[in-house]
Design a binder for these strands. Structure first.
Length: 275
DNA sequence: CCGCGGGCCTGCGCGC
DNA sequence: TGCGCGCAGGCCCGCG
């Protein structure tokens, strides 16, 4: 599920409910996620409180008062939700319940268990092996620029779309927003990365930002439902231009939207509007 | 070093 | 209605 906008939406949804809240109890029902939940997880959390929240690419970082941070990744199907009270009956695939001093509960659910929850000293987050290799954030206008892309793509042999999924290049784009951003930029997904001009890359940078921002904005509209509901960010309401719309009419030209597989991933585009 | 394909899991929607 | 199949928004790893 979650690409950058969904993780950002999750962060914004959780923060007001969790910030400065003490953790009174932790229950882990399944530890075998993508990586196992550390044995010391419950002990490290209990009695401390949340002091900060940030997103790095698709990672959600939750800082605790004892100088330890939770590094969370939602994988394909992970969600966090806050319930007003600890539910008497958990939903299937609720793997972790964190009880707060307010009586509310933070619950991690992940049917496919591709996500993970790890612990790391807060001051070492940026040097964590999984974090330090991440490319720039798409919204970082200092480091994520057309010039940066031009330089990075110069030695790439493959097509642009799968490259956008490489978190080492830019952190946070997934399969949906790769297709969407390329459509907005008017660039075909199968263009060789090194063939893109500086001008096209400028359009791509702007398109990536606008597509992600739009999705964040639409997710934000349902943040109020974060407690009591299922915590699902509002991105389902987001109208995709091409993703999942094969055979439908292109919003730009009225021709049919195409679907094909690239590097094993579904890819959508309009061959009239993208060149 | 790079790019690709398989694997990890469960759920869902589709066609028969 | 039931069943089997293919597919799903991420990431790591091994292979060539």
């Amino acid at each position: 599920m979650p690409e950058l906008p969904e993780v950002e939406t999750t962060k914004r949804g959780l923060e007001p409910h969790l910030n400065q809240q003490r953790i009174d109890a932790v229950e882990v029902y399944r530890r075998d996620l993508r990586w196992p939940i550390p044995d010391e997880f419950e002990e490290v959390l209990t009695g401390n409180w949340f002091v900060g929240f940030k997103r790095i690419g698709k990672y959600l970082i939750m800082d605790l008062s004892n100088g330890v941070s939770i590094i969370a990744h939602l994988g394909m199907s992970g969600t966090f939700r806050v319930e007003h009270t600890v539910p008497e009956i958990l939903r299937k695939h609720d793997h972790v319940v964190i009880v707060l001093e307010s009586g509310a509960a933070l619950i991690y659910r992940d049917p496919r268990r591709f996500g993970f929850l790890l612990l790391e000293e807060s001051r070492s987050i940026r040097s964590h092996p999984r974090i330090k290799v991440m490319g720039p954030d798409p919204f970082d206008s200092e480091s994520f620029t057309a010039e940066y892309l031009l330089d990075s793509l110069r030695k790439k042999k493959s097509q642009i779309k799968p490259i956008l999924l490489d978190q080492h290049l830019v952190a946070g784009i997934g399969n949906i927003y790769a297709s969407e951003a390329l459509f907005t930029a008017g660039i075909r997904p199968d263009r060789l990365a090194l063939s893109l001009s500086l001008h096209e890359l400028q359009k791509l940078v702007i398109s990536i930002r606008s597509v992600l921002q739009l999705a964040i904005n639409s997710g934000g509209s349902t943040l109020r439902d974060f407690t009591g509901g299922d915590g699902k960010p509002g991105y389902f309401q987001h109208a995709f231009q091409v993703y999942g719309r094969e055979g439908g009419l292109c919003v730009g030209c009225g021709q049919a939207v195409d679907k094909f597989v690239m590097a094993g991933r579904a890819t959508y585009c309009c061959y009239t509007c993208q060149s």
